[in-house]
């Protein structure tokens, strides 16, 4: 009986914390309908009148090309998410399922990549990307973002748990390594989705490298466009900023809702190993 009461109290407290955590996001959505004066007055929660025109302004590209920025963000993050997952899974498959002589060396390299994240080499990376002629191009952001040290370590460990007999049978049948790799993909599906999702979100959030590499308005990703608009002037309608931010969250929440069950099963299995 008392267990039940405790569980109800804990549930209520958690629900309250969730509301506190989500409050700024509610405020952002409501803010996209408010005038500047209302936004800067934190005592006003509900907008006095629901002004939908800020969404119109957002889509009319008056401040920045919104649809273009959004498309850029989706393109860059998808390429990075899928690319990083595939590359890391391929390399992790070989490292995890063979006793390579270079195994420790390769994993050590992965640890180093984790230790020195791209933000710390942003400046020379920017110069190098310029030199390669990828300045102001989405590829200049997406290609460097496909290298994930964490992904290599993650998939090397995931593949070290895949039953060896299965791989050996396929090898005896004379299947090529690439084909065997393809065969293992359904086995590690939750891990692929979990990692792909995490990397997709991280690439969406990336700031310093897109900021340096993507120069013109047409190539900017959404967070960079929003930050530029925010930095430009406090007199522009803040609601446009709020509307852009709110719509920009939609793809992330959609991907999250899709990946959530897989994320849970992948993590539980990974932790239990």
């Amino acid at each position: 009986m008392s267990r039940k009461i405790v569980s109800i109290i804990v549930g209520c407290l958690l629900a309250l914390s969730t509301i506190v955590f989500l409050y700024p996001l509610f405020w952002m959505i409501l803010g996209s309908f408010k005038s500047n004066a209302e936004i800067f007055n934190t005592r006003i929660f509900w907008p006095r009148e629901w002004a939908g025109q800020y969404y119109g302004i957002l889509f009319s590209n008056e401040y920045f090309p919104f649809i273009r920025s959004m498309a850029n963000s989706i393109a860059v993050s998808l390429t990075q998410g899928v690319g990083a997952t595939l590359l890391a899974a391929m390399a992790g498959f070989v490292i995890g399922s063979y006793r390579l002589r270079a195994r420790n060396g390769l994993l050590g390299l992965g640890v180093l990549v984790v230790l020195i994240p791209a933000q710390m080499v942003a400046l020379p990376l920017f110069i190098w990307v310029n030199f390669l002629g990828l300045f102001d191009s989405l590829l200049g952001v997406a290609l460097p973002g496909m290298v994930s040290g964490l992904g290599l370590l993650f998939f090397a460990r995931v593949y070290s748990q895949v039953p060896r007999d299965l791989l050996d049978v396929a090898r005896m049948e004379g299947a090529s390594e690439f084909r065997i790799f393809l065969l293992t993909l359904p086995l590690v599906r939750p891990f692929l989705i979990a990692f792909g999702f995490a990397h997709f979100v991280l690439s969406w959030h990336a700031h310093i490298i897109p900021m340096l590499v993507l120069n013109s308005e047409e190539t900017r990703t959404l967070p960079i466009s929003l930050a530029a608009l925010y930095g430009s002037s406090l007199n522009s309608p803040q609601a446009v900023l709020m509307a852009g931010s709110a719509l920009g969250m939609l793809p992330l929440v959609a991907v999250f809702a899709f990946a959530y069950p897989q994320l849970k099963s992948a993590l539980q299995e990974f932790v239990a190993q």
Partner: peptide, 21 residues
């Protein structure tokens, strides 16, 4: 649902988050 809700701020790009704050 609660875990899902608590994780949503993690989806918020840091730039947007700073704005909200």
């Amino acid at each position: 649902p609660l875990a899902f809700g608590l994780m949503i701020p993690g989806l918020c790009p840091p730039t947007v988050l700073a704005l909200l704050f």
